[in-house]
Design a protein around this nucleic acid. Sequence first.
DNA 1: CTGAAAGCGCTTACAG
DNA 2: CTGAAAGCGCTTACAG
Lengths: 342, 342
Amino acid sequence: MKTTTINDVAKQAGVSKKTVSRVINNEANVSEDTRAKVQKAIVETNFKRNPLGMALAKNRSLFIALLTDNPSPGYLMKLQKGILQSCTEEHMGLFLYDCSYNSNNLLKEIEEFIDNTLVDGFVLAPPICDKLELLEMLNRKNIQYIRIGPSYKHQGEFVGLNYYKASYDVASYLVRLKHTNIGYIKGHPDEESSTIKENGFKQALQDNKINWDSRLVAQGYYTYQSGRDAAALLLNNKPAPTAIFASNDEMAAGVLYEAQSRGIKVPDELSICGIDDISITTKVFPNITTYRHPLVNIGYRAAVLLINRLKNKQSSAPYGDSKNNETFDGELVIRDSTASIK
Amino acid sequence: MKTTTINDVAKQAGVSKKTVSRVINNEANVSEDTRAKVQKAIVETNFKRNPLGMALAKNRSLFIALLTDNPSPGYLMKLQKGILQSCTEEHMGLFLYDCSYNSNNLLKEIEEFIDNTLVDGFVLAPPICDKLELLEMLNRKNIQYIRIGPSYKHQGEFVGLNYYKASYDVASYLVRLKHTNIGYIKGHPDEESSTIKENGFKQALQDNKINWDSRLVAQGYYTYQSGRDAAALLLNNKPAPTAIFASNDEMAAGVLYEAQSRGIKVPDELSICGIDDISITTKVFPNITTYRHPLVNIGYRAAVLLINRLKNKQSSAPYGDSKNNETFDGELVIRDSTASIK
DNA sequence: CTGAAAGCGCTTACAG
DNA sequence: CTGAAAGCGCTTACAG
């Protein structure tokens, strides 16, 4: 099955292939007449531009990749879904690359990946989006990227989640339920988001005149197991907290398990909240109250911004230092894992 | 940063670029002497073959893609992880494409994806791997693929899971726990695996002289919600089943939720089992007894087989009709959602 | 506004 | 065993 090339279109339209190239790239300086002729020929010959030809000539593939470090599956799935959707709309393929945050030769591995696939854009998911050496390497190699996460040391563009509002709102909600003895499980110490969420939590306490008690704070790492472990610690307090706020859902699920394995009734004896609204929150019993981040949308927008940037760069349209950042708000989602103090 | 090309290597080694090409493709007919010279030059110039150049010349990208229909996230994540691992080892990129099984123009969309990315190989996950029109289209376009799932109408190669053994073993285990009133939730009616699992279940009942009771069988669709719905139906039976065997974990999690929301104690009043061993089974309380399929391994092997095939085809090595199928066994994993009848 | 030439990095087909 | 030529499908840089 011979595919039709730019040459076939040129012949059919009676123009040079350069002119065809102009049309498919939407360049200026083509008379309306010939443009129409070419477009007609494109349809007639069922022409599709071969991306490899373009990539080789331009030295840019327009392929993008999602770089992850295998965080919570539910989080990743939603993000991935949005990114994929945008890529499909833009007729682009999405590469996947799963790396290891702590690998010693992380940078080398990623450079190799770039060489092997010739991607020229990355969507960086947390926690990899906060890895400064990586961002610097990408800058050096002139590989475009967009970060999923809050602004970080002024590197690159980002699509942000409003982590502060998330934790502030969740904490305030728990206070409205008359909880004052609230355990808090922090996120991974290396991630920007952890600090921001903690600040939101503290501020909510302060605004409600509740004292901050360090015995009610436990270190987590955004993983299920770390949520369990932290809950075990917090629940050993006397008196035990009446609510535990885990700074992501993956940990909240761990808290729920730990509570249930100790025979603690949720929400009657313990309220539990998370952040993100990943799928597991509606699969466990009881469903977990959380703060919904529009992750699918966030992934979608991140990919759109990245792809637009690549395309603009290609057509040498103005692309200054103006950053196209977007920050998404979310909303509190009240479910069955929280109840008010009687 | 100018990258070094085959020409640079040729110059450095004092040979023609064709000879360099021979060396990097491991072709015969190169004297050991020049091969060594070229290899030395490759190292010295830090040469990396540009995949786009090769792809354009050969009209094959060696890129592969994972084609999914967004099944249970946990299932997909494990599969993806294995595939990714193999791709990384082989220095290949993995494209992702999420399609909609029921889309009217599924085939057209996939053809477009192929045109846009020039992938020349697919890993087909269930349920998409059982879509005959798709397989035929891929055959026609001469796109290689490997299916994750049992043999199906003699199409293509596959990496199979032993579904029969899975359900036979789980059912037998429930019988050993003295359950005789066992509810069964079938898989999606369009998927081969559903029939095979049901056969395994029936055979186990028969071998243990337990009568098959159609009121104890409910239709599921491999989704969480369908598991809940089916459980609701089954639990309305009088007497209610003492165990429910869902033919995948996603549904088993739904069963657990439904039971708990009715105040039914698991495992004391109801035992629950699934199949697959996806991550949710160890995140809910109680952890769910299941049959572990080595999904990471399965994904890994599938990608290895596919990539080898592509490479062999490329080097025109013998590639007959000999199929390289592999079938993986799994193992029963007993956890806390099952108990014996007193 | 349009096109002929040269080139991106590699391979195939052929000649020696 | 080795290489010069032509080509994969597209674009850039230039000329008109």
